[in-house]
Amino acid sequence: MNQIAPSRLLARFDPRLADELERIEAAARPIEAKARRSPDAFNYYARSLTPNGGVRIIYRDLLRHWCVTTLRFATWCSAIAAASFLLWKAGVGVVPWLLGSGFAGGLVGAFVFREIFQFHKIEIHPDGIIVDGRYFSVDLIGENWPTLQFVANGDQSRYVLTGIYGTRLIEYATCNRVDRLDRTPELLAQDLDLAMEQLWGRREAIFAAS
C-alpha cells in the first residue's frame, strides 16, 4: 500500500483555502454575537443529591388555591367600591364617575390578578420524604408511595402529589403548569418514581430478604 509522505501533503495544500476558512470564521462571529440567549430549558427545575445520599428536587409552581382566588376577587371588588364611593363623595358627574371607577378597577386588577409563583423542595431519603420542610416517615407511607395526580375536576394543568400516610389521604404538594408548554409535572413524576424506587424499593427488598 502506497503512503503519501507528509511533505507531499503540505506541498499540495492550497494557501488560498486557509484564507477562505478564516473568512468564514470571521463571518460567523457576528452571527453568534447577535444570537439571543436560549430560554431556561428546565424552567427553574433542579435535581441534586443531598449530603446523606438522598435526592433533592426543587421546582416552581403556579399558586392556584381557591383561597387566593377568593382573596383576589374580594380585594378587587373592595377597591372598585372604595374608588366609586370617593368619586361619588367628590360630586363628579356620571361619566367621570364611571371612567374613574373603571380605571381604578383596571389598575387594581393588573396587580391583584397577576400570577403568583412558589417554589417547592422535595427530598427523598431512605427513611422518608421531606416536602417543604415537613417530614413523612416511610414506615407510615408503606407501599402507598406518593403519586402525582390530576385534581378532582380533571384539569390537566393542575396536579397534586398525594398518597396515603398512615390512615389518612394527604396532599404533599401541588405542581401546576406555569404555562401550556410547561412539562414540569411529567419530569417531576419521572424523577420521583426513580428516586423512590432506588431508595425505598431497595429498602423493601432488604427487609423482605431478612
Rank of each mutant, 00 (worst) to 15 (best):
R72F: 02
S101A: 10
G105A: 07
F150T: 03
R60I: 02
R23S: 12
A152Q: 14
W66H: 09
F117C: 08
P6Q: 05
E204T: 12
A41H: 08
R202Y: 05
R183A: 11
I80A: 15
P15E: 00
S137T: 11
E115Q: 09
I31H: 05
N43P: 05
T75N: 02
R23G: 07
I206W: 07
T50R: 12
F103G: 07
A28Q: 08
D19F: 11
E171P: 11
L98A: 11
H125G: 09
G128A: 04
L192Y: 00
S48V: 08
T70Q: 06
A209L: 12
L187I: 15
L199T: 01
V95K: 09
G54L: 06
T147I: 15
T75I: 04
L10E: 06
N153V: 02
N153A: 05
S84C: 12
N176C: 03
F42N: 15
R177T: 15
A81V: 15
G166F: 06
R8W: 07
A90V: 04
Y45V: 03
G166W: 07
Q198C: 03
G109I: 02
V95P: 04
L9P: 03
S38V: 12
F113M: 05
D127W: 03
Q198Y: 03
A79I: 10
L169F: 13
E171D: 12
Y135W: 15
T174C: 09
V131A: 06
S38F: 10
G163F: 07
E32L: 14
R56K: 10
I130V: 15
W88V: 10
S84M: 12
I122N: 00
V108E: 00
R177N: 13
L169Q: 15
I57R: 01
K121P: 00
L17H: 10
F150P: 01
D193F: 09
L49K: 12
N153L: 07
L161P: 00
P96Q: 09
F103V: 11
N52R: 13
A81R: 09
L161V: 02
P146R: 01
V138H: 04
H125E: 14
R72P: 00
S78G: 13
A82L: 14
D155L: 09
G201I: 07
L49F: 09
I122E: 00
R47N: 08
L140P: 02
G54W: 03
C77V: 12
P185N: 03
G154W: 05
A189H: 10
T162A: 02
S157E: 13
R177Q: 14
A5Q: 14
N43V: 11
S84T: 15
L63D: 09
S210E: 15
F113I: 04
Y165T: 01
S7R: 06
I141P: 01
I206S: 08
W88K: 12
G154F: 06
D40R: 04
